[in-house]
Amino acid sequence: MLDFLVFAVTMIAIWSVVALSLDLQFGLCGLVNFGQILPFALGAYGPAISAAHGGSISAGLALGLAMAAVGGVLVLAPVGRLSQDYWALVSLGASEIFRLLMVNVTPIAGGQDGTAVARVSNPLAALGLALGLLLAMLLLARRIDRSPLGRLMRVLREDDLLVATLGRNPFRVQALVTVVAWLMAALAGALYAHVVGFVAPSSFSVAETFIVWTALILGGAGSLLGAVVGTAFVQFISVSTRFLAAWSGLPFDLVANLRLGIFGVVLVLVFLLRREGLVPERKVRVDAVGP
């Protein structure tokens, strides 16, 4: 029982970092990233590419982070020219281009079948690393959230023109947030690769992006704790329905499909019934101080 719980909590911690990263982009900055799985995938493919070509673990980590930082800026580049719904499609497209490349160009990292990477074989060590990463990223995100930059981001979310009239360049704020957020997700991806021990394209599909979105919306966009709570809830649904499946006695294939359907239903219900999420964003009140 213990190993099972340990693995489940490890996954919650890793995916929480991904949700936190999306929270910085969307919750605080208003960037509708429909390709959130991309920075995570880039982070995971760093170790995978390194392993496939005989590189070291640290080289893999560095490669993953570098790809995420560059990728973030590239994907963000057209954001100024587009409204958010168009940009959402660009980010979704970018994540799929990467996944399709990994599927179809076998020499990069094993194609569809993927690549084995060094695995953290002690489950408790993996858990410790994941919780450590989550804690560090929570502190970092909190720091950004409460800083003048965080306030500027919230202004940007509501009205980018206002940011421009304040004498700030909206794109530079967005670029800074994107690079930080993508590095966070890439770190989570690299850790994921080493915890799971195997990197294959099927782990980084559009569906994964929307599971992160479900977690964020459920937890409450704009609230850092919400990202963690939402992820925990989503992973809990995913894991606990395995037990319900056995108990229900329904045919195995029917149960498997119903399990996945729950995510969609949860996402819609949150929108309809509790739009602010489980942990609503705290209202920041800033009074003008002095001249």
Partner: peptide, 8 residues
């Protein structure tokens, strides 16, 4: 067909 779910 996903590694993480297989491990779960």
């Amino acid at each position: 067909y996903k590694t993480q779910e297989a491990l779960n």
